Amino acid sequence: MHKKGWILLLLLLGLPVQAVPTDDIANILRDQEAAWNRGDLDAYMQGYWQSDKMRFVSGNKFRYGWAETLAAYKKNYPDKATLGQLKFTIEETKMLSNYAAIVVGRWQLTRVKDKPNGVFTLLVEKIDDKWVITHDHSSD
């Protein structure tokens, strides 16, 4: 076999085809955006780690737990008018390891009377072979 053939064979054998984690992570936010925009907060929360250790930080409050966070969303966004239309913009996804990433971006709600917006930093981790948000710090 020629030298080029060996190099190609080594490349093919040494590099298994795998999904890019950043694509999987971006899909979480796309799915959340779609769920929010159809008014489905239960589906929106599927992007978060379903654990009492999941942390959500906003304003000057710390909230712990998936169920507590869902309850807060339902209280603060009781109807389609308050939900509005959500748009996420990912500015950067930095892989910290094969099992963790930091995602930095912007969020914007478009409602009839206003357009609140802000920034977020997410810690996304691969737990039980699924990427989930384990820490969310969002602010205006």
Results as ranks from 00 to 15, higher is better:
K3W: 12
K4H: 11
K4N: 14
K4R: 14
G5A: 13
G5E: 14
W6E: 15
W6A: 12
I7E: 12
L9V: 13
L9G: 11
L9A: 15
L10Q: 02
L12A: 13
P16Y: 00
V17G: 13
A19S: 11
I25C: 01
L29D: 01
L29K: 04
Q32R: 02
E33F: 05
E33K: 05
A34F: 03
A35E: 02
W36R: 07
N37D: 08
N37P: 08
R38V: 07
R38M: 07
G39S: 03
G39Q: 08
D40K: 01
L41Q: 09
A43V: 04
Y44M: 05
G47H: 02
W49C: 05
Q50V: 04
S51T: 06
S51F: 03
D52E: 14
F56L: 11
V57Y: 10
S58N: 11
N60T: 13
K61I: 12
F62S: 14
R63V: 15
G65C: 03
W66Y: 15
W66S: 02
A67G: 08
E68N: 14
T69D: 10
L70N: 06
L70P: 03
A71K: 11
Y73P: 03
K75Q: 15
N76H: 08
Y77R: 05
P78M: 02
P78F: 02
D79C: 09
K80M: 15
A81S: 13
A81Y: 01
T82D: 11
G84T: 01
G84Y: 04
Q85Y: 06
T89V: 14
T89S: 14
T93R: 04
T93C: 10
L96D: 00
S97C: 04
N98V: 10
Y99I: 08
Y99F: 11
A100E: 00
A100F: 07
A100D: 00
I102E: 09
V103T: 09
V104H: 10
G105R: 12
R106N: 15
W107Y: 11
W107A: 00
Q108A: 06
L109G: 08
T110V: 10
R111C: 11
V112Q: 15
D114N: 07
D114I: 05
N117P: 01
N117R: 14
G118L: 05
F120D: 00
F120W: 06
T121P: 01
T121R: 05
L122H: 07
L122K: 02
E125H: 10
D128W: 09
D128V: 10
W131H: 04
W131D: 06
W131G: 01
V132G: 02
I133M: 08
I133D: 04
I133H: 07
I133W: 07
T134W: 01
T134C: 06
T134M: 01
H135M: 13
H135R: 10
D136T: 09
H137N: 12
